[in-house]
Design a protein around this nucleic acid. Structure first.
Ligand SMILES: [Mn+2]
Ligand SMILES: [Mn+2]
Ligand SMILES: [Zn+2]
Ligand SMILES: [Zn+2]
Lengths: 145, 145
DNA sequence: TTCATGTTTGTAATCATTACAGTTATAATA
DNA sequence: TATTATAACTGTAATGATTACAAACATGAA
């Protein structure tokens, strides 16, 4: 439990979200595990602490958090949605071998991704994805040779 | 039938893909309908011409095309994969109201999206997505007021 | 207490995608 | 021509993420 529960509670209240125990636990988990987890990963961790925890609650909560802008939905894999509590604009890299999703920092971020309109369309969110083989998997396959 | 079947056939042969009738029809459809269609949209169109056409064939064919680099998988919606025969790097905009996916041209394209490596990870593909309300839907809701 | 409201839960339904096995088409070989 | 091998296609069943829904629960006001 790295993040202070008081802060977590305040974060929800500030957003006008009723701070139920389930919501607190989910938000705390997201703050402490910046690995872009799936619903299932969150569920399997939290069900230990809250045996009655329902997957539906996690889906509902994440949808609420997303709507309120305190969590980001990442659809990079095309299979399952992954969640990121870090809502500052940054890019993601998906490794096709190990499935891990990395944050990537562009030295010259594309400023156009941060604008409010494009071609007359009103922008609410922007995502940039890279796919390939990650550093670790590259090294592993190099060692095998 | 806008695109010439001869060209379509040549495109497959050049890629080392056996040009079956089903594959030709799918590739022709993609060339003539640059709307980022789903498997279902393609299926419902082609089943008129080929009554025995199977969804599985479309899934298999698109996976093959994607692997060979002649089609791009777009996972912007998180619900279903959409396909784009235009493999030149460009960004996409998803309208949350009407569901349409638009191409968007950035005047200053983010050159970093085109690099081969980032943070040591080897890049095979890159996608940039915007989500919001499209121009047409904005105008519609303006007229209602 | 009663009532209203919002939240959580468990199950069933939905829907995109994949797995699989049988059938068909094609071309090479005997 | 008949046989065989191989790749492609097809239809159905299975899978797995997500959503719909209704019952149970919690909370606080009247
Ligand atoms: Mn991230
Ligand atoms: Mn496009
Ligand atoms: Zn990896
Ligand atoms: Zn629209």
């Amino acid at each position: 439990m790295i993040t202070n529960m008081k802060h977590i509670k305040k974060e929800l209240i500030d957003q006008g979200i009723k701070p139920t125990y389930q919501r607190l636990c989910i938000l705390e988990y997201l703050h402490d595990n910046l690995v872009h987890p799936t619903v299932d990963i969150i569920y399997n961790k939290l069900v230990n602490r809250i045996p009655t925890m329902s997957r539906t609650t996690i889906y509902n909560t994440l949808k609420l958090f997303s709507k309120m802008g305190i969590v980001n939905e990442i659809t990079i894999s095309g299979i399952e949605t992954r969640y990121d509590i870090n809502c500052e604009f940054h890019h993601h890299f998906l490794c096709k071998k190990c499935g891990k999703i990395y944050d990537v920092d562009l030295t010259n971020p594309c400023f156009q991704m941060e604008q409010k309109k494009i071609d007359g369309h009103k922008i609410y969110e922007a995502q940039s994805y890279f796919k390939g083989i990650c550093k670790k998997c590259l090294e592993k396959s190099k060692n095998k040779k």
